[in-house]
């Protein structure tokens, strides 16, 4: 194992793990808390990436990250608007926005399919100058993600956060209380997509490039991270669950890094992440089915005795 797991692999897995953890936290809000499958995540991630790249290219790296978040908010608002005000089903709303975003993303990138930022300054180049060493990228990513994680967990424990959580937990209850579900879904999706956008923006500066296909499959990858995290950490306080999601994201990147190291072609990774998600979600159901089948087999053997008893009694009755 020693030659498979090197320090540099751990390092880059952690860096990517932290950056992509923001998308996993976004899905934690939309999928786990609001109970909405937000399929606009792929497009929104690329949008954040493209917007940040464009602004960074103009010489404003920090502004770029905020612009990426703002773009994410707009995308989230659109998804929420379609489902709360125009009566479009939530999954469909996400797909519609996702499709539309492709054009928007291409436009933001100046109608090119990729952009590169090799010549410009970014938060990572600044960090390199001030912090130095080899760990500066990880420090930047970790600080941003941990900060975001703490803010989100604080937010989810405010009265508004509680209202958002109740909206996803029991719509019947919320309808009978004074909570405005439309507003709560909108705020929830805006916050979630702001994080997705920020993640895309950070990645643009991290890998110094942006590609139109960058977000493809992002929703599955983030779900994989989310599920790994929730399985490992389980239920608990919001902070604990968000920490679990970040851990899940890092672990996922670690699995990917090891797979790459073992010469699994990069093209296969999407299939691998699909399988991880499918298996992780199906596992509890499969376990349940297996337990039930076992119970059925056991009961069949036992009940055979009872059935014979009943048949025997009837037979005797008939003879007498």
């Amino acid at each position: 194992m020693g030659n498979i797991i090197t320090l540099s692999i751990v390092q880059s897995a952690l860096e990517l793990g932290f950056i992509y953890a923001l998308v996993a936290i976004a899905l934690f809000i939309s999928f786990s808390i609001l109970n909405i499958a937000d399929l606009s995540t792929d497009g929104c991630f690329t949008l954040g990436c493209a917007v940040c790249a464009a602004v960074t290219l103009a010489g404003h790296p920090i502004l770029g990250l905020f612009a990426a978040m703002a773009a994410g908010v707009c995308s989230g608002f659109m998804t929420a608007f379609l489902q709360t005000k125009l009566g479009i089903q939530s999954i469909l709303a996400g797909i519609i926005v996702n499709t539309g975003l492709y054009t928007v993303n291409i436009a933001v990138m100046g109608f090119a399919s990729n952009m590169n930022l090799f010549q410009c300054e970014s938060v990572f180049t600044w960090a390199k100058e001030t912090i130095g060493g080899t760990w500066y990228k990880l420090i930047v990513a970790a600080v941003i993600v941990i900060l975001v994680g703490i803010i989100i967990s604080l937010f989810l424990n405010t009265r508004m956060g509680l209202s958002i959580r109740a909206t996803g937990d029991n719509p019947d209850m919320v309808r009978a209380s004074s909570i405005n579900t439309t507003v709560m879904i909108t705020i929830g999706l805006c916050v979630a997509n702001a994080l997705t956008g920020l993640s895309g923006g950070l990645l643009a500066q991290y890998q110094k490039s942006c590609d139109i296909n960058l977000g493809t499959g992002m929703v599955t990858i983030a779900l994989a991270s989310l599920i790994i995290g929730e399985t490992l950490i389980g239920k608990g306080s919001m902070l604990k669950r968000i920490a679990g999601v970040i851990l899940g994201s890092c672990l996922y990147r670690f699995i990917v890094a090891v797979a790459l190291r073992m010469n699994v072609p990069a093209e296969c990774l999407k299939l691998v992440s699909s399988i991880i998600v499918a298996v992780a979600i199906a596992l509890p159901y499969i376990k349940q089915q297996m337990a039930f089948n076992k119970q059925k087999r056991k009961a069949k053997a036992e009940n055979q005795l009872y059935i014979q008893e009943i048949l025997g009694e009837n037979g005797n009755g008939g003879n007498v």
Binding site: N157, T158, R159, M160, S163, R165, N170, M173, S177, I179
Partner: peptide, 30 residues
């Protein structure tokens, strides 16, 4: 139908109590 199952008793009650105040600040109070 009347309570949110995955939230604690305390959090459910806080939601009910939310009705009391109409001020916007209450939304960000813990």
């Amino acid at each position: 139908k009347g309570t949110a199952p995955h939230m604690t008793i305390e959090e459910n009650m806080a939601l009910a109590f939310l009705r009391a105040s109409t001020s916007k600040n209450a939304y960000f109070s813990r």
